[in-house]
Design a protein around this nucleic acid. Structure first.
Length: 571
RNA sequence: GUCCCCGUAGCUCAGUUGGAUAGAGCACAGCUUUCCUAAAGCUGGGGUCGCAGGUUCGAAUCCUGCCGGGGAUACCA
């Protein structure tokens, strides 16, 4: 995948007489002064019956100068390798230049389809801040899988069914007269829902009323159906406002209601296979052999439950797309639920069994506790996004007063939203995250705006220089800072693979930051010594440096795209 | 009770799948502004990698047991 890595592998395997396909772990030495890459000899010692330092000597002795590698030295049990810098610089510039927007991607997933279930909010409720996790991790995974050659289907699985929606219909009947849903519809619906739940505690007739309304909905009663459809549309329109801010678009929106008619065949099939047993009045699949609680599919009152809907929906997704993999980007609190119905699919021997993955993530905590949207007072996602854009707009006005108001507003949204998204995606999925306004609204250091700033900086320097980068002579590159930057650029394709293999967008986010730091360090050299500027006085050197900077910019733009951040040309 | 996740600098987090002296940012002390502008760079202090064992040439990383935090644990999603 990288001719320089290939050369190192070839050298090691041939020197030690190992098969050419032996796994050779190529790492970065702790100190750049030691070399560009390093290979530890320990893994080969046992098989070859020799001590690691001796093997390192053998590799060194077999090295012949010329080609991709410039020097090979033994440091005890390690073999440190320096690669030919002019060749490497030329290689990097060529790759990025040829790849452009697709640079970093691969075709590993060619012919394969992944269905990614993400965001999946409940209608008639706001998108709260914590929805950013599923929404952006899922969105980013769509792009990462696509960059790895997969066909992706992004799916929003709306919570639009169940007795809670009956409550809302009942509440509307009581108090809905005169309410205009055209403006802040979701807020009004949510208020009605909260009001109804509160009233239920006082008035025992309300819960049956809600059930009756839901029954009407299930039976296709036109009045109930129309009203529910209206609530659904109002909610979707409001979700869409937030999604468009984030650049999120789905390939399909299928709510729980969509699968309503598809559950009976699932139940029948499980019953026919003898998997469905009666237990405490409910119909369940026993999972004691998997050390799991039984999976309830039909409640004792005869109604279905979310496991039934998930099974029906998986079946439907299989019929629609014949996926090779289906990701469920859902918080880790639902781990048992997913294990249960994945197990049911396996027991039933369905063709898609084993292809589902629960991509779990940690929860957003407020003061160390899980959020409760029911308790009210939840922080809304659009509020956080708007606040960040507002704050950053003031910063831009101060730092870049010549920018027009329109442009400033556009860039403020890109960078403000970028700050919020980056703050979430830069962390490993698995950990819980504490909601912290101060940290979300910081634009310095390990942040999205820092990455975007480096991108804008490079774009501006290159734009103003107006040089013909196709004439760049890579042999004129060579400072330590340029070198470290180029090495990082070359790592990008592997990061795109790793992020996909682990379903982990933070790998790309962390990488983007590392690349920015390397570039920023390099760029700052120019303030100490004008000869070290990117756009220095010596035209051929400037051309080569601008070409490398341009490669960094392209890499950065591609990385930011994968995590859903805009890459502004100026800021 | 059982199961899952987490525990690394004062705070927020990385750590190349077991490798050489554990790294960033924030905060703190200081220094540096004619390329996009300091939204940055450089220097410095700051660590028993929760604790105790084990596995081996070698452990923040793997195994076991504790401690601490969060979550799940059949008719909500």
């Amino acid at each position: 995948m990288n001719p320089f890595h290939d050369a190192i592998r070839a050298l090691v395997t041939s020197a030690l007489g190992l098969p050419a396909d032996t796994v050779v772990a190529i790492a970065t030495p702790p100190n750049p002064a030691m070399g560009d890459y390093t290979v530890a000899m320990f893994p080969f010692a046992k098989a070859l019956g020799a001590k690691p330092p001796e093997l390192a000597q053998r590799v060194t002795a077999a090295f012949a100068a010329g080609g991709a590698l410039s020097s090979v030295t033994a440091a005890g049990p390690f073999v440190n390798v320096r690669i030919s810098r002019p060749a490497f610089f030329a290689h990097v510039l060529g790759l990025v230049g040829a790849g452009r927007d697709s640079w970093g991607g691969n075709a590993d997933g060619a012919g394969k389809t992944v269905v990614i279930d993400y965001s999946s909010p409940n209608i008639s409720k706001h998108l709260a801040y914590h929805h950013i996790r599923s929404t952006m991790i899922g969105h980013s995974l769509c792009r990462i899988y696509a960059a790895n050659g997969w066909k992706t289907v992004g799916l929003n699985f709306l919570g639009d069914w169940g007795t809670t929606h009956g409550m809302l219909l009942a509440a509307w009947e009581r108090w809905g007269a005169g309410i205009d849903l055209a403006e802040d519809g979701v807020a009004k619906l949510n208020a009605l829902y909260v009001q109804f739940r509160a009233a239920m505690k006082e008035d025992a007739t309300l819960e049956p009323l809600a059930r009756t309304w839901f029954k009407r909905l299930e039976d296709g009663d036109a009045g109930a159906r129309d009203l529910w459809e209206r609530f659904r549309q109002v909610s979707l329109a409001e979700f869409e406002k937030v999604y468009s801010k984030l650049g999120v678009a789905f390939d399909a929106v299928r709510g729980e209601s969509y699968y309503e008619g598809k559950m009976q065949p699932v139940i029948d099939d499980l019953a026919a296979k003898g998997l469905l047993v009666e237990s405490e009045g409910a119909r369940v699949v026993d999972l004691t052999d998997r050390k799991l609680p039984p999976c309830i599919l039909v409640k004792s009152d005869g109604a279905t439950i979310y496991a039934t809907r998930d099974l029906a929906s998986a079946t439907d997704r299989w019929d629609s797309w014949h996926f090779d993999r289906a990701l469920y980007v859902v918080d880790k609190g639902q781990t048992v639920h997913f294990k249960q119905w994945f197990a049911v699919a396996e027991k039933a021997g369905w063709p898609f069994a084993g292809r589902m993955v629960h991509v779990q993530f940690g929860q957003v905590l407020f003061g160390g506790r899980k959020t409760s949207t029911r308790a009210g007072g939840a922080v809304l996602l659009h509020e956080v996004l708007d606040e960040a854009a507002k704050e950053i707009e003031a910063v831009i006005a101060e730092k870049n007063p010549s920018m027009t108001a329109d442009k400033r507003s556009e860039v403020a949204r890109q960078v403000g939203y970028g700050a919020i998204v980056y703050a979430d995606l830069s962390k490993l999925r698995s950990g819980d995250v504490e909601f912290d306004w101060e940290r979300l609204l910081s634009f310095e250091g390990d942040t999205g705006p820092f990455c975007q700033y480096q991108h804008a900086r490079i774009a501006s320097v290159v734009r103003k220089a107006g040089a013909d980068l196709s004439l760049a002579d890579a042999s004129l590159l060579g400072t330590e800072e340029e070198w470290r930057t180029a090495l990082l650029v070359a790592d990008f394709p592997q990061k795109v693979r790793d992020a996909c293999a682990k379903d982990e967008p933070s790998i790309v986010a962390t990488y983007a930051l590392d690349l920015c730091r390397a570039f920023s360090s390099w760029y700052a050299q120019g303030s100490k010594d004008a000869a070290l500027k990117v756009n220095c006085d010596d035209a051929p050197t400037a051309n080569a440096r601008l070409a490398l900077a341009s490669a960094v910019r392209q890499t950065l733009a591609n990385a930011l795209f994968l995590i859903g951040l805009a890459a502004p040309e100026e800021m």
